[in-house]
Design a protein around this nucleic acid. Structure first.
Lengths: 368, 368
DNA sequence: CTTTTCGATGGGACCGATACCATATGATGC
DNA sequence: GCATCATATGGTATCGGTCCCATCGAAAAG
């Protein structure tokens, strides 16, 4: 079928006469390409990975063979031989959370260029799943692993160490990182929120959070409330308005319910910090329904700067963290580490900080 | 280091004396395990994949070796040999969309049990990225591929066919599927919305959609408006109130802006269908800001049944599709196909249908 | 013109598993 | 008691690439 077959082939023959029949499955292999192009397998491999080392004429000849066969190299085979899989593992609590999705997005954006592929696993906040997923990930021999949220199983931790690959903890910034860490302190988030509300002159200040669960592994929200409470205490304010309600992960309806409960218990609350914008939005909606004016009667703020917060009435004051940028920085650190040659890199601990976004849902803001 | 080393070993020796030094990298291989346990590599392999074929005593001996070394099999090597990678490819427009994330979630839930791993790639609605991502996916030799949204590049399509693996199109239900398809008709979504609003007695009926872009590959919203317009026409109603504004993908702010534009151009609009709940929520918020009463002055409905729609005031009438269940069905179809042996399976075309969720954002609903 | 150097290419071993078949051992049948 | 069979295990080739080194020819150096 291929036109203009031979005769001009200048290279001595015998090159890659390569016995052995075409593979059983339909897919062409490097051997098929090499035969069609009349070169050795090695040359085909070079055309793909280091084209500069191949003579232009040869390169084009091989490229034509590749195109005509629709050859796509098998990276599993390549990985096995080169000991580089091109996988980066990412372990998340859940995919269905805009922030985590944004982190994944940011990482991918950066790694894509270098042909690394993100291998995503998530535990659905289930401690038991953690070990299974970790094992499944490591079986793919990722060159590095990114985790968000602490690991909770001893066993998972041990596997991680045994794997002996770079580890980056992302989002939450632990005081004792395993190795590298990029993120922000959830504890600081709570303190920042409290300081802000206190500075505004409120004294009956509450929070909406979730009850720390058993099987559930999300302790980030709890960290935020802890920082919040700490700061209240430092200013001699009561913690009575801080409400832990329902189970993590929180949602819009969590905010509604928790706000209803808070208003029922402490109708005189002046300002509320919800550990997530989702809860905060739900709280604002609940106030609307009850005819409680925001921010005139109650001020509300959240965390995360979700898009919906900008759109509601009044728009939501919140604490912003750029999760996508977080992902991108993680991507760059990964490339750096992988280029430098693994463990040569001193552990990094990068705090990306927070920013308070003032909108109208807190009384006394210029825009309200 | 290992206690109670030998002496009771009953099996004739020589079994897997297996010369060859321990591997260069630190990670133990099947060979290390076999040596430590005093069995052949094959036996170790059996303990892992078909434990029933191994004598309990041997099995335990091997298991102890596995545990003590922290051995995790290398699936790249296994894949190469068994020609089963355990990968399912999933190609999405974006990760940062709750519906797509829900599909991925549903698929994973089902596949997890059988040790299949989802390999996710997304194009960010970028046509050019499509081919690169497809090539990267296929290089990992997935056993099947799931795509959402049509492919737009000829080349990507050709690669897909050349790969010769089962293809499932999910979410949108094309009239001419490549092979299997599970989903719903976006066109039908638009028609359902229009029929509903018409039946409610409205005559000045509008829609909020995005302008079909060039580089952007999201035609699902456009499908919905097309069905909507068709049905308006069938009832002799004007299309003047149908507004295409801004670029896909749509967001909350898209809805606000589009609603503002629609009110400016046609202040007498009675009812509006937004192609996404995000737009619909934005539209409701915009009405709130302008003092336009929903649903008294304008009725609004959306599509997708996002959680936020349940929480706003008034709650949003919408069309519901269970994306997680969609993912789960996809997962089951995949398992079915992979067990049956690939192409033996007749192409499935499964319409999961729609359901209208009546809430208070449309006038004349009992709850409003 | 011979020797050295260098660039392009090929040959073969190998990465770490599994498929396939051979073999040993003890149980079963007649 | 010997052939037959099932069960447990081992040996070896192989999957599809890449690594390392050998080789070859032509250009550069002497």
């Amino acid at each position: 079928m291929s036109s203009s077959p031979s005769s001009s082939s200048r290279s001595r023959d015998g090159a890659g006469t390569d016995a052995k029949a075409s593979s059983a499955t339909g897919r062409p292999t490097i051997r098929d390409v090499s035969r069609l192009a009349g070169v050795s397998r090695m040359t085909v491999s070079r055309v793909i990975s280091t084209p500069d080392l191949v003579l232009p004429a040869t390169r084009e000849k091989v490229q034509r063979a590749i195109d005509s066969l629709g050859y796509v190299p098998d990276r599993a085979a390549g990985s096995l031989s080169s000991r580089k899989t091109g996988f980066i593992a990412l372990m998340l609590p859940t995919l269905t959370n805009a922030n985590f999705a944004a982190v994944a997005h940011g990482i991918t954006e950066v790694l894509r260029e270098r042909d690394y592929h993100l291998l995503v696993a998530y535990t659905d906040y289930d401690t038991a799943e953690e070990e299974r997923q970790m094992r499944a990930l490591l079986a793919r021999r990722p060159e590095a692993i990114v985790i968000t949220g602490a690991l909770h199983r001893r066993s998972a931790n041990r596997m991680l160490l045994a794997a002996d690959i770079p580890v980056i903890e992302v989002a939450n910034l632990p005081s004792q990182p395993i190795e590298h860490a990029i993120g922000f302190s959830n504890y600081e988030v709570g303190r920042t929120a409290a300081r802000y509300l206190i500075a505004k002159g409120f004294t009956r200040i509450g929070a909406l959070a979730a009850t720390p669960g058993e099987t559930v592994t999300d302790h980030r929200g709890e960290e935020r409330v802890r920082g919040f409470e700490e700061e209240l205490a430092a200013s001699g304010l009561s913690k009575d308005y801080v409400l832990r309600h329902g189970q993590a992960p929180v949602s819009f309806s969590h905010g509604s319910d928790a706000m209803a409960a808070l208003l029922a218990a402490h109708g005189d609350v002046e300002a509320v910090f919800a550990v997530s914008d989702m809860s905060a939005v739900g709280a604002v909606m609940e106030c609307q329904r009850r005819g409680v004016a925001v921010p005139e009667q109650v001020s509300i703020m959240g965390f995360g700067d979700f898009e919906i917060g900008r759109e509601i009435n009044p728009p939501l004051t919140t604490i912003h963290v750029d999760f996508r940028a977080l992902g991108q920085r993680t991507g760059h650190l990964l490339l750096d580490i992988l280029a430098t040659g693994a463990q040569e890199r001193a552990p990094q601990r990068i705090d990306v900080g927070l920013s308070l976004v003032e909108r109208a849902s807190v009384k006394g803001t210029k825009s309200s």
